[in-house]
Design a binder for these strands. Structure first.
Lengths: 101, 101
DNA sequence: CGTGTAAGGAATTCTGACACG
DNA sequence: CGTGTAAGGAATTCTGACACG
C-alpha cells in the first residue's frame, strides 16, 4: 500500500533542489492548500517523492498562468471524477456478480 | 535505472527514526565503510531508502554479534558472487546467440 | 496574488574528543 | 571495538513582516 514514494522524509532544502522551486514558493503552496507536508517534532517540514511530483505539476500550471485557487479546484474535480469512476466500476461489478456488502 | 529508492535525500535524523539506530551508530558505520551517504554543500549527510535498508541489514548482523569488518567482507563476497553470476550469464548468452561486442 | 528578502530564533547536524570496556 | 555523551560551532529551517505590483 504505502511505498517509498509516499513516505514523508525529505526536508524543504532538498525538495527545493529536486524541483527547482524556491523554499518560499514551496511554503506558499502549502499556505494555499496545494500541498501537505508532515512535520518533525521540532517543526521542520517533511515531504514525500509524491509531494515532489505534485510540486512539479503545480509549477507547470503556474507557468501556464493558472492561479493557486484554480489549481486547487482542478484537483478537487479530478478527485471527484475519480470517485465517480470508482463508484460506477463498483456498481458494475456488483451487478455482474450480484454481490451484496 | 535510478529510482526513488536510490536518491540520496534523507537527513540523518529521519534515517535514525526509520531505522531505530542512533545517529552515532549511523555515522560510525560510515566510518567503517559500510555505508556511503552523499553530502550537501554545507556538509549534512543525505541517505537513500536503499541506505536505510542496508542499515537495517547491518543492524541485524550487529545484533548477531558480527563485527563491522566482517560485515564489510561479507558484502564484498556478495559482490564477487554477483559479478561471477553476471559474467557466466553473459557468457552463456553470447554462446547461445553468438554475439560479439 | 505570488514571490523575494532581511531578521531573529530555534531545530538539526557536524566534528573531535573523552569515557567505558 | 562499538557506542554514549557533552561541547562548540555551523548549516538548515521556521515564522511573521515588509515590499512590489
Amino acid at each position: 500500500m504505502s511505498s517509498y514514494k509516499d513516505k514523508k522524509v525529505i526536508t524543504i532544502g532538498i525538495v527545493s533542489e529536486l524541483t527547482g522551486l524556491s523554499e518560499r514558493k514551496i511554503r506558499y503552496y502549502e499556505e494555499r492548500k496545494l500541498i501537505y507536508p508532515d512535520r518533525s517534532k521540532g517543526g521542520t517540514r517533511k515531504y514525500s517523492f509524491l509531494d515532489v511530483e505534485r510540486l512539479l505539476d503545480i509549477a507547470n500550471k503556474m507557468e501556464d498562468g493558472m492561479q493557486t485557487f484554480e489549481i486547487r479546484k482542478m484537483e478537487q474535480k479530478q478527485m471527484k471524477k475519480q470517485e465517480v469512476r470508482e463508484r460506477m466500476l463498483r456498481g458494475q461489478l456488483n451487478a455482474a456478480f450480484n454481490i451484496r456488502k
